[in-house]
């Protein structure tokens, strides 16, 4: 597996895949995509990087422990349901607001926050399983 070509390409490929995963995550509300599939793409990026250059560089590159990332995502997803408490509507009701960034209207919402949480949960959980398997296989 660890040919020169693969080892050279893998970091670029991983970087592009992470970028693509964020694109897929953000377009998810109205078009195919979303947190789960975006998270899977990012997790496979880390898995590819791990196969090419070993598990330790991946762990250094993502800095946080994968389970910590999953915990962060879980926290965000749960908190995303809470703003509806202030409006007197049930848990997880979608709240929308729009802000102007350089004269472009950007819609912000609690479902998007929830989706970002899902993204982190999937990235963290799948990366941690993938790295655990790779560690056993190659080291």
């Amino acid at each position: 597996m660890r040919t020169v070509i693969f080892r050279t390409i893998a970091p670029f490929l991983a970087a592009i895949m992470v970028l693509f995963s964020i694109f897929v995550l953000l377009r998810g509300h109205n078009e195919p995509g979303g947190g789960f599939i975006g998270g899977l793409i990012a997790a496979s990026a880390f898995a590819i990087y791990g196969i090419a250059s070993g598990v330790a560089p991946v762990r250094r590159a993502i800095y946080f422990h994968p389970m910590g990332i999953a915990g962060f995502g879980l926290f965000i997803a749960a908190v995303a349901g809470l703003p509806s408490m202030l409006k007197g509507v049930p848990f997880l009701t979608g709240m929308w607001t729009a802000i102007e960034v350089f004269e472009v209207k950007v819609d912000l919402s609690t479902p998007m926050l929830f989706d970002i949480g899902v993204y982190f949960v999937v990235v963290g959980a799948i990366t941690s399983i993938a790295l655990a398997l790779e560690e056993r296989e190659f080291d």
Binding site: H65, M67, G68, A70, G71, F72, G73, L74, F75, A78, V79, G81, L82, F91
Partner: peptide
């Protein structure tokens, strides 16, 4: 449900 999810998430982050 919400309390335990948030508690579990905080514990995961402070592992």
């Amino acid at each position: 449900v919400v309390t335990t999810i948030i508690g579990g998430a905080i514990c995961l982050m402070t592992r």
